[in-house]
């Protein structure tokens, strides 16, 4: 299938005097890994926040699988299949890693008031999710961290747990906001390896903000470049890397 899973049409968003997004339109193809890059403050995180219902766009619209989703509440957007991670991770500080990760999968049976006291109703699902968590932790070499309280994790681990939460959400589209910031380079690479493995096996779509452009470009199919809230350029990694406007924006911005 080549039809876009996510479509952003002419979205604008201002914060007081700051124009964080200005008439941004883009598409994410189903089953792709799409990148979103741009200098700091160019509006990347704001775009994610608009897509996930965290902010309401001033104008423009967002479509997911052909359905208009801007204006829905964040929990509704999550439940139709868009998971996101935060640039500054928002883990539940006094819960353990395991509990943090177990919270991700959407539509858990045991999360209803009536079924919760009936262990039989949710125990199988619970065991299955716990298994997934265990495998994921092993994948990221964090086996022992499951019983650590989230507020006592190291910075890199926090970031990995945040990313794992995005992956575990049983979403169709996963938005990752700088997943490898503060993470060791080799770990970052294995994270991207895992992402492209998931894309192939689980038919997931990824939309990733990333500052390590060298790393990102090895794995993405398509890249969008934001600059001062506007879409500056788009294309395959090669096209973008050779676009003079992009080079200028990065050098000019630095």
């Amino acid at each position: 299938m080549t039809n876009p899973i996510l479509e952003v049409r002419n979205v604008s968003k201002r914060f007081g005097g700051v124009e964080a997004l200005r008439d941004v339109s883009l598409e994410v193809k189903r089953g792709s890994i799409t990148g979103l890059i741009g200098p700091n403050g160019s509006g990347k995180s704001t775009l994610f926040n608009v897509i996930t219902g965290f902010y309401k766009p001033d104008s423009g619209s967002v479509y997911f699988e052909g359905r208009r989703i801007d204006g829905l509440n964040p929990n509704e957007i999550y439940n139709i299949g868009i998971a996101r991670t935060f640039q500054i991770p928002r883990l539940f500080g006094s819960l353990t890693t395991l509990e943090n990760m177990m919270l991700s999968p959407r539509g858990q049976k045991g999360e209803s008031l009536l079924r919760a006291p009936l262990r039989k109703a949710w125990v199988n699902e619970e065991l299955q999710i716990a298994n997934e968590v265990k495998n994921l932790l092993k994948e990221f070499n964090m086996d022992g961290a499951y019983r650590m309280v989230a507020s006592s994790l190291s910075g890199g681990h926090v970031k990995m747990v945040e990313t794992s939460k995005g992956i575990l959400g049983r979403a169709k589209l996963i938005l990752l906001d700088e997943p490898t910031a503060g993470v060791h380079y080799a770990v970052g690479r294995s994270l991207f390896e895992y992402i492209s493995y998931l894309r192939k096996t689980a038919n997931l779509t990824f939309f990733i903000i990333e500052h390590r452009i060298d790393l990102l470009f090895d794995y993405v199919d398509y890249v969008y470049v934001l600059h001062m809230g506007r879409l500056l350029s788009q294309g395959t990694p090669e096209e973008v890397a050779s676009d003079p406007k992009v080079i200028e924006a990065y050098i000019g911005g630095a």
């Binding site: 929990n75 935060f86 883990l91 819960l95």
Partner: peptide, 23 residues
């Protein structure tokens, strides 16, 4: 139960909990 876990997530950070699909 998973419900109790969701409750605790609300206590910790209700916005993050909302963004994880908890109503």
């Amino acid at each position: 139960s998973p419900y109790g876990r969701a409750l605790k997530s609300i206590r910790e950070d209700e916005i993050a909990s909302l963004c994880l699909g908890k109503p």
